[in-house]
Design a protein around this nucleic acid. Structure first.
Length: 692
DNA sequence: GTAGGGTTAG
């Protein structure tokens, strides 16, 4: 027999396979001198052996032919071998033939074989067929239930998957660790936490909560529900950890924007000797991107290179994203250009990067290249990046043309509310408010607060009370918790001298007790992040910062910088006002960078909200006087300032000064934060009670 | 046999 296999393998290797069974039979009979005639049963036995050999050598089609020849002689072992090979090759056709053979020969598969068939269909992405097999099974076991559940979950049918869990428990089948880890991945969305907690209870009752896989799913479930504290407790309670559980907790922090915690954990795990894989790095890079911690990002990139990981597309995408968010477009482009294969996310990450930097030409060229290569189709995000860039870069015609291109349906994309939002923003910024309003009325989707807010902002910039009032009241109704809406509407009324309306909005805001997000800025020096708040005194080097600020101010004033005191809402003298304005978090971070980074090195500052107009002017003058390149990343975009000129083109500053120097810019107000929230020029104020 | 963590946009 050993000789037979050896010879047969040789034949297979040398391409003489079509002789198939007859050939092997001859080999078998010539190697056996004891018998010259084969009985029917030994014939079947040889056929069955042949089938095994064919499967073990990956010749599924021939094995299936042997199955047909075997007819009623097909038994458990042969079916099992065949199905295993079908699973290995993900052969749907093979599975269908095996199942058809079972039906034809009236073979009743065991629970095990039925489950293998079900697994096969799921591997071939045929959920419907799997469900059919499942429905026809007289008995099921934990594997059948769990695999079907997993298939529903992978297809995104989380509630169907959870329904299966309930049915399984009702049927009396006991769940195992696979069942729980699968079930927990279904616990996302509105009822995710509620269901997840119930499953958590079950895992405690069945003592599975400390299982490594179950624990990872559990902590991930809590993190995705925003319950990071609970996730951390589960993680700390795990009796053992591995790269997946460690990555899950890092990613949990990163996805919630708790980037510093994510990085701290990563560094801790590294010290403890934990191995990282590409998922770990992708998660850490998300945190680095959030913080724009360029030096840390570079270090992690070199770690990745040293670790000799294969060039995973996902990891390269994360690197592109990290570099663009750190303002290093050249590095991002290098990673992008070196990719041997790209997904739509690679293109999008690069396009979004250019878009955030207002680089319209680069966005346009890259999109053209994407079309030319024609390997990857653009998706909704691609168009969002392009439309958003057109909107910020005053490319009205180009934006409308791209929108039409998307609407033509050639890419099979149905525009989302965000795409319509870009067009409203585009028209609003261009001052075409009536057109934007009409566009909103005609669009097939219900306008969301972002769209209405964008138009309201444009109404303030372009002084249109008619549309602004209509939109503003709608907005206060559907988004009463956003302070920006109240402030913009109030300013719009104030700009037209409608003080009663201003007072009314102010009262409304007080009644609703609208919360404001505190502004903060940060800078990375030697891989350490230094965070500042308005008027900050907490940083140990603050004395140095204020000293430098004082010294700098003399020079800056010589170059024409004058702190904009009109934006301070407190009723204090000018000296105090100047102190407040100079205490803005962006300025503190910038001056800190001037002191603690080498001369001539670019300074990179991040802010969690929109940058204030005065800080923007301050940074521009600093870049000239101190001969420093300044990168400021705010909530919405990048400001790359070189020798007093900013890449943003001062769009909103332009509107502020060209129409009314005292009037606040809408973005500044949308921020709704720091110490300068209400910024109507006091010289305009006729009624002191109108000061918020 | 079945199971856990990941990348762009808003």
């Amino acid at each position: 027999m050993r000789l037979k296999i050896k010879l047969f393998s040789h034949v297979l290797r040398h391409g003489l396979y079509p002789l198939s069974f007859h050939f092997t039979r001859q080999l078998a009979s010539s190697s056996s001198s004891s018998s010259s005639s084969s009985s029917s049963s030994s014939f079947s036995q040889e056929l069955a052996t042949n089938l095994q050999i064919l499967c073990s050598t990956g010749h599924l089609d021939y094995a299936l032919t042997d199955m047909a020849r075997l007819g009623l002689q097909m038994k458990f072992h042969e079916y099992d071998t065949l199905i295993n090979e079908c699973v290995k090759q993900k052969s749907l056709r093979g599975g269908q033939r095996v199942q058809a053979h079972m039906i034809k020969t009236q073979y009743t598969p065991s629970v095990y074989l039925g489950t293998r068939l079900l697994i096969l269909y799921n591997k071939c992405d045929c959920l419907w067929d799997a469900q059919q097999v499942f429905d026809e099974m007289p008995d099921r076991n934990v594997v059948s239930w769990t695999d079907l559940m997993s298939a529903y979950s992978k297809k995104g049918y989380a509630s169907e998957a959870l329904n299966l869990l309930v049915k399984m428990l009702r049927s009396g089948t006991e769940p195992n660790e696979h069942t729980f880890s699968t079930a927990l991945t279904c616990c996302t969305g509105v009822y995710g936490l509620e269901h997840g907690m119930q499953i958590h209870n079950l895992t405690i009752k069945t003592s599975f909560q400390s299982h490594l896989y179950v624990g990872s799913s559990l902590l991930d479930m809590y993190a995705k529900a925003g319950e990071i504290h609970e996730a951390r407790l589960v993680f700390e309670d795990l009796p053992q950890r591995d790269v997946v559980s460690c990555t899950a907790i890092i990613s949990g922090y990163a996805q919630l924007g708790l980037d510093e915690d994510a990085l701290k954990l990563f560094h801790r795990f590294q010290k403890e000797g934990m191995a990282s894989n590409y998922v770990t790095y992708a998660s850490v890079l998300t945190a680095v991107s959030g913080l724009a911690a360029y030096e840390t990002g570079k270090q992690i990139h070199s770690h990745i290179l040293r670790s000799k990981l294969p060039f995973y597309i996902i990891l390269q995408n994360s690197l592109i994203d990290m570099y663009t968010k750190c303002g290093q477009l050249n590095y991002a482009r290098k990673v992008f250009d070196k990719m041997s294969e790209r997904t739509v996310i690679s293109w999008n990450a690069m396009l979004v990067g250019y878009s955030k930097h207002g680089m319209g030409t680069e966005v346009s060229n890259l999109f053209e290249l994407m079309r030319k290569e024609n390997k990857v189709k653009p998706d909704k995000v691609t168009f969002l990046a392009i439309l958003s860039c057109c909107s910020h870069g005053h490319m009205e015609n180009k934006g409308l043309q791209v929108f039409d291109e998307m609407m033509s349906g050639k890419d099979g994309i149905v525009p989302d509310i965000e795409h319509y939002g870009c067009i409203v923003d585009l028209l609003g910024r261009a001052g075409k408010l009536e057109k934007a309003f009409e566009f909103i009325k005609k669009m097939p989707l219900k306008p969301n607060p972002a769209i209405l807010g964008s138009l309201l902002g444009a109404c303030l910039v372009h002084s249109n009370l008619d549309i602004g009032e209509t939109i503003g009241y709608q907005l206060l109704e559907i988004e009463p918790e956003n302070p920006g809406n109240y402030v913009i509407l109030s300013n719009l009324f104030a700009s037209k001298g409608k003080w009663d309306n201003v007072r009314m909005i102010r009262n409304l805001m007080e009644i609703k007790a609208v919360a404001k997000v505190p502004g903060k800025s940060w800078i990375e020096i030697d891989q350490t992040l230094h965070t500042f708040h308005s008027g900050d005194q907490s940083h140990p080097k603050m004395e140095l910062v204020y000293g430098k600020m004082k010294e700098l101010l003399v020079k800056l004033k010589e170059y024409g910088y004058c702190p904009d005191l009109s934006r301070v809402l407190y009723d204090v003298d000018d000296e105090q006002k100047e102190k407040i304005v100079l205490g803005h978090s962006e300025k503190l971070a910038l001056v800190f960078g001037l002191i603690f980074s080498p001369k001539g090195k670019a300074i990179r500052i991040m802010k969690n909200l929109r940058v204030c107009v005065d800080c923007h002017s301050f940074a521009k003058v600093v870049s000239r006087v101190c001969e420093r390149e300044v990168f400021m990343r705010d909530k919405n975009r990048f400001h790359h300032i070189v020798n007093g000129v900013c890449s943003c083109g001062d769009y909103w500053v332009f509107h502020l000064t060209s129409t009314d120097a005292e009037r606040p810019c809408n973005h500044d107000l949308l921020v709704g934060i720091d110490m300068y929230i209400f910024s109507i020029g006091r010289s305009q104020m006729k009624d002191p009670a109108t000061t918020i």
